[in-house]
Computed example of a mutant assay.
Amino acid sequence: MEVQLIKGHGSGNDFLIIDEMSNGYVFSESDRGELAKLLCNRRAELGADGILFVMNSKNADGRMRVFNSDGSEASMCGNGLRLVARYVCEHLGKNKAVIETMKANLKVSKQNDLLPDIHTYQVEISPVLFELNALPLKLNKPTLFNEKIEELSADLRFTAVAVPNPHLIAIVEADQLESDLQKQLSEKVNGPNHLFPDGVNVSFVKNLQPGSIYVRTFERGVGFTNACGTAMSASSLVTSLLELNELENVVNVYNNGGRVQCVVHECEGKYTIDLIGNATYLYNATVNVNLEHNSFTVSSKTDLSEQSSYEQLQTEAQRYVEMNIKG
């Protein structure tokens, strides 16, 4: 099977984009998971955090399905959605579109570049659900907001939220960021455990200055990544509700892959979040895949020139974090 793909990233969270809208590929459900495990393997030639399948939709401009590198399907991916937003908008010649995801149809739009020559898109993150059964989290209470879970930590306070994929968020200090605590917690709640039967994304958030936070995330099905779009969105929401930041105001969210912006909106007690950041293409490739033999070869690869512009943003972000993380 010959497959055309684009490799791109949002905030360093990298994906392979496969267009099912115009290429006529016929993948079974198991094929998509197997393709993700095969092509995303970091020890092979391509490597990525996951695959974004761009598909036709009956009620939107396009449809996104996200498969993690372990073959599992994610209900949502904010960094991936920016890449799909760019692909669909350019494919259709539009500046705005609606993308169907597993849980909701979401508005996306092209925005002014964060820095020159950095393709920038805004995507809607919703629905936002605080009910623990939406994650699910097995505790004898309906919600968890800035509270302790004693068997995870005697010190940290956690907030649980689904946007719609599940997130467990803790506001931390620099020494907690530098410790192994996040790794230990994340591996516990993503292994066999009674609290999170389906696992959970775990984010440690450090407040830097008013309007600026740093987020590091252990992603369910992936591990530590440079950035997680829904985690950055959920973290902006939590810090706004804790009055560390303000609703309706831009929050600059720094991560190991760079920087994005989030704006949290509230209407009649319900929340939505705008996630604004890069959608950078790295290369186009053609691969020949043999799923029966669990193998592939890359027959062509064309590098693109967008990454150098993004590296300027990344350097600026890293410098800012280094100056402020211990402040």
Rank of each mutant, 00 (worst) to 15 (best):
172 V>H: 09
306 E>D: 15
61 D>Y: 08
162 A>Q: 01
33 G>I: 06
155 D>A: 11
256 N>D: 15
28 S>V: 03
274 D>M: 01
109 S>F: 01
237 L>T: 02
185 L>Y: 03
164 P>V: 02
106 L>E: 10
272 T>V: 02
64 M>W: 08
25 Y>T: 00
53 F>D: 07
80 G>K: 07
87 Y>L: 00
314 Q>Y: 12
262 C>P: 02
242 L>W: 02
225 T>W: 00
302 T>K: 15
92 L>E: 11
321 V>M: 01
38 L>I: 03
207 N>V: 11
50 G>M: 08
318 Q>G: 13
85 A>Y: 04
197 P>D: 11
201 N>L: 02
47 G>V: 03
159 T>D: 11
243 E>Y: 09
142 P>R: 13
153 S>W: 12
141 K>N: 05
4 Q>C: 05
277 G>N: 08
80 G>D: 05
312 Q>R: 14
46 L>M: 10
7 K>M: 02
32 R>P: 00
132 L>I: 01
25 Y>K: 06
273 I>V: 11
224 F>L: 10
224 F>K: 06
102 M>A: 15
138 K>Q: 14
216 R>P: 00
248 E>I: 00
151 E>R: 14
174 A>R: 14
319 R>C: 03
246 E>W: 06
99 I>Y: 08
323 M>N: 15
107 K>C: 09
190 N>W: 01
7 K>W: 01
58 K>Y: 09
306 E>T: 05
127 P>D: 13
253 V>M: 02
69 S>F: 01
202 V>P: 11
85 A>W: 04
6 I>P: 00
39 L>W: 11
130 F>S: 07
254 Y>M: 01
313 L>R: 06
85 A>T: 05
295 S>M: 09
16 L>R: 05
237 L>N: 03
138 K>V: 12
233 S>C: 04
15 F>P: 03
136 P>W: 03
156 L>N: 09
84 V>Q: 10
29 E>P: 06
327 G>F: 03
96 K>F: 08
53 F>C: 04
32 R>G: 01
24 G>M: 07
75 S>M: 09
121 Y>R: 06
320 Y>E: 06
70 D>F: 00
63 R>P: 03
297 T>W: 04
39 L>I: 09
112 N>Q: 13
166 P>V: 02
258 G>C: 07
326 K>T: 07
175 D>M: 05
111 Q>F: 00
199 G>A: 10
217 T>R: 07
